[in-house]
Amino acid sequence: MKKFETKWGIMLALPGIVGYFLWVLGPTIAAIFMSFTNWSLAGKPQWIGWENYAKLFNDFIFKKSLFVTFYYAIGSVVAGLLVSFFWALLLNVKVPGRSLFRTFFFIPSITPSVAVAMVWLTLYHPQFGLLNHIFKSIGLPALRWIYDEKQVIPAFIVMSTWTIGYTITIFLAGLQGIPEYLYEAAMLDGATWWHKLCHVTIPMMTPTIFFNLLMGVIGALQGGFTQAYIMTSGGPNYSSMFYTYYIFLTGFQYGKMGYACALSVIIFAIIICLTVIIFRTSRYWVYYEALRK
């Protein structure tokens, strides 16, 4: 360790460190503090203890949005993992035009979420939407999609499987890291492709699945804002009241900053708990041998 290294190290890292305290740690502590106040845009904030948290128990929309968000998170994470794993397996086969196929599956993921919402708004349109056209042409009844209480979350889950390019890319990298000799050994034992999938590919992919699962859960629990803001306004009848949208409404539409902070502290706690649970259970299903080089 040379002397100039310490000086320069601190100097160069300083913006990042200050930024961490200004934009991450500071606001997080402030949010916890504010959640015990009746902070609003007008008037002096007062310390009200656990009142905001007590109010949550009687807040119908809070409970609804928690349910909706979990429903969406479970559905979109499971569907997203399955669908992207499927496409990654196929995109890993050496077929002509493979890089072009990869591009096609990736492009929806770089599309701005506002534009994605606009497109799906018309795909789901009950009268002229493409999906109802297709349904009718194959003899299925037309659906109400995002305009129906029961269909709106499944519709958003379907929509989420359109933007899985990042997950596919990470799965592809994982697949390419599986040593070829494992497949050769399996072949000598006369394994079919199904056996190879279940006994080589999937076990070797568990660290990658773990990563995508964790990122997926953290992301999905905070997801849905753009969809709710542009497509449904949280409706019909609060059936797409995503948690972040509810925080946004509470804080910025109704001006109840303290209460919104209590809401955000709850989702923070939930995300931490789930992360710990996913890490703890990972030892039972993630094949750690693969992590060792």
Partner: peptide, 15 residues
């Protein structure tokens, strides 16, 4: 900070 949801920092940062 990768673990901290943006929803938590949103309101204090705004204030």
């Amino acid at each position: 900070s990768l673990m901290i949801p943006y929803a938590v920092t949103l309101i204090p940062t705004f204030i």
